[in-house]
Design a protein around this nucleic acid. Structure first.
Length: 599
RNA sequence: GCGGCGGUCGUCUAGCCUGGACUAGGACGCCGGCCCUCCAAGCCGGAGAUCCCGGGUUCAAAUCCCGGCCGCCGCACCA
C-alpha cells in the first residue's frame, strides 16, 4: 500500500505534538514565527544527535579537534570586524503604491546593470532618483532606501550599554579565542576547534517550520591549517591517524562548473578523487565532507538522499572562497541544506588581527632551519655621541623608529640618513654580515568550516525514519538516537495473583535497567498491542515483555521495533542483549581483532 | 514585507454562507475502573474548547465588519 506523502507528513505532525517531539513556541500568546520548542521526546533525540556529532567531529578525530563554548552575546566590534554587520544588512525600498518590497542593490543591478555593493544609503537614493527608478510591478513611486539588519540587537549593560548582537554563527567566538585554544591544545597544528550552540538570525519572514528558524543550534568545526602544506602531508597525517577510510567515502557532488552550464547533475567521486581532480580547493574540504557524509548516514539518512551542491560565486558568503552545501532530501521541503562546508581562507583571523592587532598567528617550524646570511646595522653610539652631543637623544629616538631593513636600504642606497636636517652618514653605522638560522615563520592559518544546522538534521532524520504501513506507524529511527533505549511491559495487568506478580517483576526489571544505565520507560496501560504501538511511535528500539513464563524461568521476551520479532532471553543476558542492539560503538572484540592479534 | 486562503477540545472535524433554540455536537486520543496469555480489541465512567487575540455592529456574535497574531500557498528574502 502506498502512503500519500501528505498523510505521512500529517502523521509526523500528529506524533510530534501528541508524543512531545516539537511544537511552535509561545503558543498561548498566539505564537511567534521562527521559534520552536523541543518536547521531552524531541530533546532526547536532539541530544543524541548532538552526542553523535561530537563522536564523529571531535572524539573520533583523535586529538585533531577540541571543543569550546563561547558566549551568545557578541560585542558589536567583533561582528563588525567579521563583516557580518556590513553583509547582514540589506538595503530595502518599497513601492508607495503597491507595497512591494525590493532589495535596492538587486533593483539597480537589474534596471541599470550597475554593481552597487557597499554603496551608502544616500548614494543609492541618489542613483535611484537620477535614473527615476520606479516599481517594476506597478510603476509606483519608490521609498527612500532603508537598511534591514538581520542581526538581533541588544546592549551590554542595562542603561546606555554597549551595542551587541546575538551571534549569527558560533564561528566568531572560536576565531576570537583562537590563540587561547591553540595554546591550551599545546600548539597542536593543524587544529580543529568545535562549538555547539544557539545562534540567532532575525529573518524577514521565516516559514517552513523547523527548517528556517530565527533561533537555532549550530554544530561546527573551524579547522585551522596551513594551505602551503603539500597534499601528501595531509594524506600521511590522515593515514597516521588511521582515518584513511574517510578518503574512500563516496561524495555525491554537483560542482559549480556544471551548475553554470545549467546541468544539475550529481558526480559521484570518492574524497580522494575529489582532491585529485581538484573539485575542492583544499583537501581538507573533501576530508570534512566525508566525515559529514558518514555522520548523516549513521543517523539513518540513505546515501542517495545526501548530496553536495557547490555554491556559485554570487551565492557564497562574504568570507568564503569555496562552499559546498550538504543537502538532504525531505518529502515536505525537497532538498534542504543541513550543513555548509566553507573554505574561509584566513579571512576571519586576518580581520580580527586588523581590528585588534592581536597576534593570531601560528608559528610554523621548518623541518630544517634555514641558514641565511643577513646584513645587520648597528649605530656607532660612541661616534654619534662624540660628534652630535646635543642632538644625540633625538637621533637615537628617530633611529629606533626605523625598521632594520629600511635603515639598511637607506644607508646602502643614499649613503646617509637625514634626522632633523642633519645628514648622518654611513660611517656612523656598523654594518656586519651575520649568519642566521631561521627556524620558522608566523602564518595566519587558513580555515575550513563544516557547519551543521541541528534542527534541520533533527527534522530530516525524523521524516526519513517515519514508517507507515496500513497496519501500523512507527519511527524507524536508528537505535542510538532513539529517545529511550527500551520499554518494559507486563504482558497483563489484571487483578489476579499471577498478574500482580508479572507486574511486580516487570517493574523490577525496569528499575534494574535504569540502574544499569539503560534508559527505559515502563507502561502497563491498555492492551499489550497498544503499548507496543505507543513505543513504536516514538521509536523505542526494543520492548521487553514479562509474561507467565518469566515467573517460572527468569526469561523475558525482547521485541524488535522494526521486525516485531520476539526473542526469549534469560535475565542474565538481558543487559548485553539490549546493549548490543542500541549502542553506536563496536564491541570490544571486533575492535581488538582489528588492531591486535593476541596470543 | 506584499497578495490569496485559512484558524472551533491534544488531534481530526460538525456548526459559519442564512446571527438566536450552542449549556458548541461527534470521532480518535487522554485519565479512572472492569476484562485480558503478545501487537492500536471490548465494556463502563470521567476530564478536556480563551470558538486565535483585540475592537466594532446588534437586543443577541463561533457565525457579520475592522485591526492584529499565527499557519499554508505565491512573490520577495534566506550572508
Amino acid at each position: 500500500m502506498v502512503i500519500n506523502p501528505l498523510d505521512r507528513l500529517s502523521a509526523l505532525n500528529n506524533i510530534a505534538r501528541k508524543r512531545g517531539l516539537y511544537w511552535p513556541s509561545y503558543e498561548i500568546y498566539g505564537g511567534v514565527a521562527g521559534f520552536y520548542d523541543y518536547g521531552p521526546i524531541g530533546v532526547s533525540i536532539k541530544n543524541k544527535i548532538m552526542h553523535l556529532w561530537r563522536m564523529f567531529f571531535v572524539e573520533k578525530q583523535r586529538g585533531l579537534v577540541v571543543e569550546i563554548e563561547t558566549p551568545i552575546i557578541t560585542p558589536r566590534e567583533v561582528l563588525k570586524a567579521s563583516g557580518h554587520e556590513e553583509h547582514f544588512t540589506d538595503p530595502y525600498t518599497y513601492c508607495k503604491k503597491c507595497g512591494n518590497v525590493y532589495r535596492v542593490d538587486h533593483l539597480i543591478k537589474e534596471a541599470l546593470g550597475i554593481n552597487v555593493e557597499g554603496y551608502s544609503l544616500d548614494k543609492l537614493w541618489e542613483i535611484m532618483k537620477e535614473n527615476n527608478l520606479r516599481c517594476p510591478k506597478c510603476g509606483g513611486e519608490l521609498s527612500k532606501p532603508e537598511n534591514a539588519l538581520l542581526l538581533f540587537k541588544t546592549t551590554i549593560g542595562p542603561y546606555r550599554g554597549a551595542p551587541a548582537y546575538f551571534r549569527p554563527e558560533t564561528a566568531q567566538g572560536i576565531f576570537v579565542s583562537f590563540k587561547n585554544v591553540h595554546l591550551a591544545a599545546r600548539e597542536r597544528f593543524p587544529l580543529g576547534i568545535a562549538q555547539v550552540g544557539r545562534v540567532g538570525r532575525n529573518e524577514i519572514s521565516p516559514r517552513q517550520g523547523m527548517i528556517r528558524l530565527r533561533e537555532f543550534t549550530i554544530m561546527e568545526v573551524e579547522f585551522f591549517f596551513d594551505p602551503e602544506e603539500p597534499l601528501e602531508n595531509f594524506i600521511s597525517e590522515i593515514k597516521s591517524n588511521d582515518l584513511e577510510e574517510y578518503l574512500d567515502t563516496v561524495l555525491r557532488i554537483i560542482p559549480a562548473y556544471m551548475r553554470e552550464r545549467g546541468e544539475e547533475k550529481v558526480v559521484e567521486v570518492t574524497a580522494r578523487e575529489a582532491i585529485e581532480k581538484e573539485l575542492v580547493e583544499t583537501p581538507w574540504l573533501a576530508y570534512w565532507m566525508s566525515v559529514g557524509t558518514r555522520f548523516l548516514e549513521f543517523l539513518g539518512i540513505p546515501s542517495d538522499k545526501i548530496r553536495f551542491i557547490e555554491k556559485l560565486p554570487h551565492e557564497k558568503a562574504h568570507y568564503a572562497a569555496q562552499t559546498f552545501d550538504q543537502e538532504v532530501y525531505t518529502e515536505k521541503y525537497g532538498w534542504i541544506e543541513v550543513a555548509g562546508y566553507a573554505y574561509r581562507t584566513n579571512y576571519d583571523l586576518s580581520r580580527h588581527i586588523k581590528y585588534t592587532h592581536a597576534d593570531l598567528t601560528v608559528f610554523k617550524r621548518y623541518k630544517q632551519p634555514i641558514k641565511r646570511k643577513q646584513k645587520v646595522v648597528t649605530p656607532n653610539i660612541m661616534a654619534l655621541k662624540r660628534d652630535y652631543p646635543e642632538k644625540f637623544p633625538d637621533i637615537m629616538k628617530k633611529l629606533s623608529s626605523y625598521e632594520k631593513e629600511e635603515l639598511l636600504s637607506l644607508l646602502e642606497n643614499q649613503g646617509y640618513i637625514e634626522i632633523n636636517g642633519v645628514k648622518i652618514t654611513r660611517k656612523y653605522f656598523i654594518i656586519k654580515e651575520k649568519e642566521q638560522y631561521i627556524h620558522g615563520e608566523k602564518i595566519i592559518p587558513h580555515v575550513v568550516e563544516p557547519s551543521f544546522g541541528l534542527e534541520r538534521i533533527f527534522y530530516a532524520v525524523l521524516e526519513n525514519s517515519l514508517k507507515i504501513t496500513d497496519k501500523r506507524t512507527w519511527l524507524g529511527i536508528k537505535p542510538w538516537i532513539a529517545p529511550y533505549d527500551a520499554a518494559v511491559f507486563p504482558l497483563v495487568s489484571g487483578s489476579k495473583k499471577e498478574h500482580k506478580q508479572i507486574e511486580e517483576l516487570a517493574k523490577k526489571i525496569y528499575y534494574m535497567l535504569l540502574e544499569a544505565g539503560i534508559t527505559a520507560i515502563y507502561d502497563s496501560d491498555g492492551s499489550i498491542g497498544r503499548r507496543y504501538a505507543r513505543a513504536d511511535e516514538i521509536g523505542i528500539p526494543v520492548a521487553i515483555t514479562v509474561d507467565y513464563q518469566s515467573l517460572k524461568d527468569n526469561t523475558v521476551t525482547i521485541r524488535d521495533r522494526d521486525t516485531q520479532k520476539q526473542l526469549r532471553v534469560n535475565l542474565r543476558d538481558l543487559y548485553d542483549s539490549i546493549l548490543q542492539r542500541i549502542k553506536p560503538y563496536k564491541p570490544w572484540s571486533a575492535v581488538l581483532e582489528k588492531y591486535l592479534t593476541l596470543q
